[in-house]
Amino acid sequence: MSIQHFRVALIPFFAAFCLPVFAHPETLVKVKDAEDQLGARVGYIELDLNSGKILESFRPEERFPMMSTFKVLLCGAVLSRVDAGQEQLGRRIHYSQNDLVEYSPVTEKHLTDGMTVRELCSAAITMSDNTAANLLLTTIGGPKELTAFLHNMGDHVTRLDRWEPELNEAIPNDERDTTMPAAMATTLRKLLTGELLTLASRQQLIDWMEADKVAGPLLRSALPAGWFIADKSGAGERGSRGIIAALGPDGKPSRIVVIYTTGSQATMDERNRQIAEIGASLIKHW
């Protein structure tokens, strides 16, 4: 067993022997301040990774656009098919120029040779490549099948209805392509620590998230040296922004954090800054 596999296998073990965790309302004060600064709703939840206990939450059962955070769930569904012998990570998928959609920095470079399922998941999570996500959605049967996968996990809230990039439209009061912070946090925890996926697939999923290259201005910008984070960000229309993450000190994750916002007129930089400040408060009061 590799060191990384050992780390993920012992996530519940280490967490069980940690000192009790206590909620700190100071972080919620910052979440509410972010709402004021952005002029928009902000949803927040913080779960203990081992027990699933909610440590703090704000608007945990209000719907927010998922945006690209759905790509972690998508690759979880792909990995479940791999575990069941219905898919192979090494299978190569070929596609054409007509398949390319807006923001496809990886797939646009491989029109000639195609990409493997493993490479597509890596591109979808680490670079948020939209064509990679659409190609992977095709392998599982489309958005409705991802929703069905989530329902089978016990998540009857999260739903995907459309493809990239239309799913980022974020129309107010439109339930399409949305989740709730509580539902997303619980589902992410199941994917990373539950028995739904094999140990190898859980490790692969967290490795992809740990290698995320496009979430630097968010929670990662607030992390002290030595902290662990595996995350996936999302951005959408109407001032929408979000991030889902597993993080913790001492090089291992111990909490799940989900943050979503929508309806702001603020710039992307300002949305990023507010999420980073929430992260800084979380870490300060850990």
Rank of each mutant, 00 (worst) to 15 (best):
E26N: 13
E26V: 03
T27N: 09
V29S: 13
K32S: 11
K32E: 06
D33P: 10
D33M: 10
D33L: 14
A34F: 15
A34W: 02
Q37D: 08
Q37E: 01
Q37R: 06
Q37P: 13
L38C: 01
R41N: 11
G43H: 05
Y44S: 03
N50L: 07
S51M: 09
G52A: 11
L55Q: 04
E56H: 10
F58R: 05
R59A: 05
E61S: 02
F64P: 05
F64W: 07
F64T: 07
P65D: 04
M67G: 15
M67T: 14
S68P: 08
S68K: 03
S68I: 05
T69C: 08
T69E: 02
T69S: 06
K71H: 15
K71L: 15
V72R: 02
L73Y: 03
L73F: 03
L74N: 03
L74H: 01
G76V: 06
G76A: 06
A77T: 02
A77M: 12
V78Y: 09
L79E: 06
L79W: 05
S80L: 14
V82E: 01
A84H: 08
A84V: 02
A84N: 02
A84G: 05
G85N: 09
G85V: 06
Q86H: 11
E87P: 06
Q88V: 03
R91V: 02
R91F: 13
R92H: 12
R92W: 06
I93L: 04
I93E: 01
I93W: 07
Y95I: 11
Y95M: 14
S96R: 07
L100C: 07
L100P: 06
L100H: 12
Y103T: 07
Y103M: 14
S104G: 03
P105S: 06
P105Y: 07
P105E: 05
V106M: 08
T107L: 05
T107N: 02
K109F: 06
K109E: 05
L111K: 05
L111W: 06
G114I: 14
M115S: 05
M115I: 11
T116H: 07
R118W: 07
E119L: 07
L120M: 05
L120N: 07
S122N: 10
S122D: 05
A123V: 01
A123T: 04
I125W: 11
I125E: 05
M127V: 08
S128Q: 13
S128H: 13
S128W: 03
A132G: 05
A133L: 09
A133Y: 06
N134P: 04
L136R: 06
L136E: 11
T139H: 11
T139Q: 11
T139M: 13
I140T: 02
I140S: 03
I140P: 03
I140C: 02
P143N: 05
P143K: 03
P143T: 02
E145M: 09
E145C: 11
A148K: 03
F149M: 10
H156Y: 04
H156W: 10
H156E: 13
V157L: 13
R159K: 14
R159Y: 14
D161A: 02
R162V: 02
R162F: 01
E164L: 14
E164V: 05
P165L: 01
L167W: 07
A170W: 00
I171T: 00
I171A: 01
I171V: 01
N173Y: 07
D174G: 07
R176Y: 03
D177M: 00
T179W: 02
P181H: 02
P181E: 04
A182V: 07
A182Q: 04
A183M: 02
M184P: 06
T186L: 05
T187I: 04
T187L: 03
L188Q: 15
R189N: 14
K190Y: 11
L191D: 09
L192H: 14
L192R: 11
G194A: 05
G194E: 11
E195Q: 04
E195H: 03
E195P: 08
T198Y: 03
T198S: 05
L199Y: 07
L199R: 08
L199I: 12
L199H: 11
A200P: 04
A200Q: 05
S201H: 13
R202T: 10
R202L: 02
R202V: 04
Q204V: 10
I206V: 12
I206E: 01
D207V: 01
D207S: 03
M209P: 05
E210R: 12
E210I: 11
A211Y: 13
K213G: 10
K213I: 00
K213M: 06
K213V: 06
V214D: 15
A215M: 09
P217V: 09
P217T: 10
R220F: 10
L223A: 06
L223Y: 09
A225L: 10
F228M: 15
F228Y: 14
I229R: 12
K232E: 13
G236V: 08
G236M: 04
E237G: 00
R238K: 15
S240I: 03
R241T: 14
R241G: 14
G242S: 13
G242K: 10
I243E: 12
I244M: 13
A245R: 13
A246L: 09
A246P: 09
G248I: 04
G248C: 08
G248E: 03
G248A: 06
P249K: 10
D250I: 14
D250V: 12
K252V: 09
K252A: 09
P253R: 10
P253A: 08
S254E: 06
S254I: 05
R255E: 14
R255L: 04
I256C: 13
V257L: 15
Y260T: 10
T261K: 14
T262W: 03
T262N: 05
T262I: 09
G263Q: 03
S264D: 11
T267R: 10
T267V: 09
D269Q: 15
D269M: 12
E270N: 13
E270D: 14
N272P: 08
R273Y: 09
R273V: 13
I275G: 10
A276K: 06
A276F: 12
A276M: 12
E277P: 09
E277F: 06
E277M: 10
I278V: 10
I278Q: 14
G279L: 15
A280C: 13
A280M: 09
A280Y: 11
A280G: 11
S281V: 08
S281L: 14
L282S: 12
L282E: 06
L282D: 11
I283N: 05
I283M: 14
K284T: 05
W286E: 04
